[in-house]
Design a protein around this nucleic acid. Structure first.
Length: 272
DNA sequence: TTGCAGGGGTCAA
DNA sequence: TTGACCCCTGCA
């Protein structure tokens, strides 16, 4: 599958902190797994190649997952409000916000709290190996993210053995609530952003940051501006404000999530 | 080798 | 508003 597309650089999209299951290969391509499918994505100039994906797979899943139909040049123009944003947008010019699975995002971002990206990836990978389904791609084995029933059936001890520490009971309770239907993607999708936040925050172990990441990266609530240490730093340094989330959402409105990703990626990885 | 600080937070007091 | 929390990594 070969696409003509602007504003999509695999490195920017898969390394900007929104996802934990895409790995860079020696040739610069990325292999990842979503929707029980493994694919390899590479790019040059205005062309993106997806290996391991049929036309049907693309239309049914990857088009939406990769946010192919969104006009990012319009978004960039809208959030380019000052010199800082201009630099951040140039630095992460190929970022796209993925539409990830709700349950996977929920558990992954619960795991992410007070943890580094390599550690998060390692824990998520161990969880998938423990409870996911094996898929072979290019001679190697990959594992799907387990569904809520599988995770809910694990014991707290099994989860702790993955290295998630005090987050084990958070993961277990969240999985149980999704498995028994007391919270669902469908329910949250129907709610406006404020109501969806209120509902998701009722989950034990889900605070402001995790909540906003889940809603932004799996349900497309783009008016959220998840605020972590990096965003707080950049908002304080460049925008002279201490209330990062509030200021970001006021400034960027319906495009807050995109602005947040450009700023996060720039502040964390631009060491110039 | 050992010790310690800190990492994409959240809960409870 | 503050301390505790689980585990791992990097660095004296």
């Amino acid at each position: 599958m070969i696409l003509k597309i602007k504003d999509f650089v695999p490195e920017h999209t898969f390394e900007c902190g929104q996802c934990f299951r895409w790995e860079r290969e020696p040739d610069g391509s990325y292999i990842g797994i979503a929707n029980s499918q493994v694919v390899r994505i590479s790019s040059n100039a205005d062309t993106v190649t997806i290996d391991g994906c049929t036309d049907t797979d693309f239309e049914l899943f990857w088009r939406k997952y990769l946010d192919i139909d969104r006009d990012y040049s319009h978004i960039k123009a809208s959030v380019n409000v000052n010199e800082t944003m201009n630099k951040a947008i140039k630095f992460g010019s190929g970022i796209r916000i993925l539409r990830q699975d709700f349950f996977e995002a929920l558990i992954s971002f619960i795991i992410s709290q007070r943890s580094s990206i390599p550690k998060i990836k390692s824990c998520v990978d161990k969880l998938c190996r423990l409870a996911g389904e094996q898929i072979c791609f290019d001679g190697k084995n990959y594992y799907t993210f387990p569904d809520a029933y599988k995770v809910a059936a694990l014991s707290e001890e099994e989860l702790r053995a993955l290295g998630v520490g005090y987050r084990a009971p958070y993961i277990l309770k969240a999985a149980q609530e999704v498995a028994n239907g007391s919270i669902s993607k469908e329910e949250l999708e129907k709610l406006d952003t404020a109501s969806a936040r209120e509902r998701l925050l009722r989950l034990y172990g889900v605070g402001d940051k995790v909540c906003d990441c889940v809603l932004l990266f799996s349900l497309g609530k783009y008016d959220l501006f998840p605020s972590d240490v990096w965003i707080k730093r950049v908002m304080e340094e460049e925008f002279k404000t201490k209330s990062a989330k509030h200021s970001g959402e006021n400034l960027f409105g319906t495009y807050s999530g995109f602005a947040q990703q450009y700023l996060f990626y720039w502040r964390k990885y631009n060491n110039a």
